[in-house]
Design a protein around this nucleic acid. Sequence first.
DNA 1: AAGACAATAGTTATCGATAACATAGCGGAT
DNA 2: ATCCGCTATGTTATCGATAACTATTGTCTT
Lengths: 335, 335
Amino acid sequence: MDRKTKANLTDIARATGVSKMTVSRVLRGATGFSDETKAKVLREAERLDYVPNRLAQAFGSDTASTLVGICVPRLTSGLFGHVLEGVDRALSRLGYQTMIGSHNHSIAEEEAWLRQLVAWRPAGVILSGRVHTAATVDLLRRAGMPVVEIWDLTTSPIDMAVGFSHFDCGVEMGQFLIRKGRRKAGFVGALSRSDVMGTARLDGFSAAMARAGFPLVDREVLLDSPGFYAGYYGLETLLARQPSLDVVYFHNDEMAIGGLAYAAAHGLSVPGDLGIVGWGGMEAASVLPRRLTTTVVPTTAIGKAAAEGLVARLKGEHCEDIVVIPTRLVPGETG
Amino acid sequence: MDRKTKANLTDIARATGVSKMTVSRVLRGATGFSDETKAKVLREAERLDYVPNRLAQAFGSDTASTLVGICVPRLTSGLFGHVLEGVDRALSRLGYQTMIGSHNHSIAEEEAWLRQLVAWRPAGVILSGRVHTAATVDLLRRAGMPVVEIWDLTTSPIDMAVGFSHFDCGVEMGQFLIRKGRRKAGFVGALSRSDVMGTARLDGFSAAMARAGFPLVDREVLLDSPGFYAGYYGLETLLARQPSLDVVYFHNDEMAIGGLAYAAAHGLSVPGDLGIVGWGGMEAASVLPRRLTTTVVPTTAIGKAAAEGLVARLKGEHCEDIVVIPTRLVPGETG
DNA sequence: AAGACAATAGTTATCGATAACATAGCGGAT
DNA sequence: ATCCGCTATGTTATCGATAACTATTGTCTT
């Protein structure tokens, strides 16, 4: 009594003189009530400052949850920040709430997060990447909710997929560099053991170079996090081994900018002595004194499409299983 | 029957031969059961792959929620990404889940988000900034849950506050620049109408310069989002009006890097002709050819402290109402 | 040996909303 | 006139866990 701070359906029912089932019907926008009743109920709900109890809604029925979970590799990545923004904006506009998680490129951590999430009986879930533990896949199938895998496309999604092919990004960059006359390419990456998507780009790049007759000369993959420092020191290490490289493909733009910093600090001319190209399309890369050659990823659009696809499926509307959001190779002045 | 995919307390109770209340007690780690019972229950819970239904837990009692909401101005900001990471890591380690929102520096959007959040009856909430709508404050007080205001410190928090003073950041930078001999300072910012924290830095900076006898010469505040481009063009506009400025304080590091790009593109020597200083401490800023003079904000630490403070309060442990996480002015080579 | 008390366990009511079913009233078709 | 079927509404059971209470042991005290 004294802890009751919020009005509930019963309060509205009492104030209106109808049963709480009728109130529920009106507020849900279901059918089966007169316009007069509807008006009365809405008026009282407003007056009593009614806030639906989503806990009770989601608990009482197995279809009413408005909770969606999304798990990304790292919250600190600029790219995933934009993905999250796209997801959260779309979801909140559609009346859903967003629960987040990050797994630091570990599918075991992703599984642990998912276990916590399903305890909340969410309406759906968005995961990054196409590789998951067997238990994750099993958990998802048993939960029977929509699942969107974003970021790296797969031809056989668990349910739906939104994104692009990392492998193809690598291929495209390889072909571009070959056309620009580059012949001795290296790669600087990070976290290769677990970042399967970064590895896919490397594989695509490597395949394209090999097919053109100029196989990848060397690679330097740090276990560090893929930031500016890793790019700086990764390039230093790689060049110490292979001074004659004419271009280096970086894991991402942050690392490429680190590479540019190294080149500047050591009097290397870019792109004359060495081409430097990145991946991701972070905004910083486009305002450098020399614009970075990179692949721009439509991050926000991916997040938005994933969220909208998920909700479409929840509402029983039609939605493609696989949505391709193409990336764009943007030639800059560094490669 | 056929939609029942998950084991619940009753299933475990049946399998163990005790009541579900006893099962609940064991799994919650409460008291009132023998070691033998405990072992049996845990074994069956494991065997049945039991996942607690958090919806039911949170719904049935008003203290059992493990949901925490956090609302930041923008998900795309590198700084807030790190804050989120700090929050989410700490919360998930402590057994809580994170629901997010963003309000784009609008306290009305923050209020709208909070209304959705409280419908989930969360355990607590983390907000950014010290300025909220009256309805927000009212909603929070009535909800009776712990609230942490992060990012900008206030002497009278709604409940708890974790962060630092933006005003003092501005003061410190002003005093630093005066010591370095700068006399004609400008400011380039963005979103001033609503970003009260950026405005607080400007106010502090402005106050410090004025107190030293060299009041701020001019400011250029764009309505754009505070990124690299805004920094570039903001500096261009400001210098067109005030060519004789000897230093410019930027809203943040992204904008300052944009300013550096403008200076490089127009043959301005930095810091010779013009000092350029930022705020925030983004990683990029420290690997530029010339390291940016900036204020480093311990973003992850703030997120972590906020989450841990919130949980401490939930557990009835002692926790300071106001936790200061000091920023650090890091002199670089640009100012 | 009786009473006090702790340890262990079970019973009942409850949170708020919704699905599924039941009912009442009314108009139209046969 | 009777039955059908529609609209508007009410009733009951249910989701899973927990708080608050009750009950049964068994041990210790005096």
